[in-house]
Amino acid sequence: MAQVSMTVNGKAASGDVEGRTLLSTFLRENLELTGTHVGCDTSQCGACVVHVNGEAVKSCTMLAAEAEGADVTTIEAMANADGSLSTIQQAFQDHHGLQCGFCTPGMVMSASALLKDNPTPSEAEIREYLEGNICRCTGYHNIVKAIMAASGQDVSSIAAE
């Protein structure tokens, strides 16, 4: 066991971990931040995406020890300070961009990273960016729509209720 320290959602966090402890495990088990999900073991589904030093990474494919000193943000810190949904979260609700909710934390974290780099992405750019986030429920239609809406684009011409 070795001690690891980092900043998670703006607060200092530390704990004793094994070398093999994944960042996702550290978040879920040591810090009880269970909003970050693990849906595969081959680094493909993206349910575990968090931000490390401002960049989207798959927390199941990073060792907790590698996050020593890092600034980590998880889904639990994505809402507004008063607890209301952020623009991206609200767009997901408004446009039914989630069903079972399991992939959703990763989707929101990826969407947030995308919009930081590309404030008004096209439909194709969103679909390409989401290559590493698998959703089994929505068929992506409403996720893509929600991200376009969150970026301020007019989505009224895109079919759906």
Binding site: C45, I126, R127, L130, N133, G139, Y140, H141, K145, I158
Partner: peptide
């Protein structure tokens, strides 16, 4: 695994 079982991804599908 997802390395060989092809799950539909966002860019495999159109708007419906």
């Amino acid at each position: 695994s997802y390395m060989d079982y092809a799950m539909p991804r966002a860019d495999d599908l159109p708007m419906f």
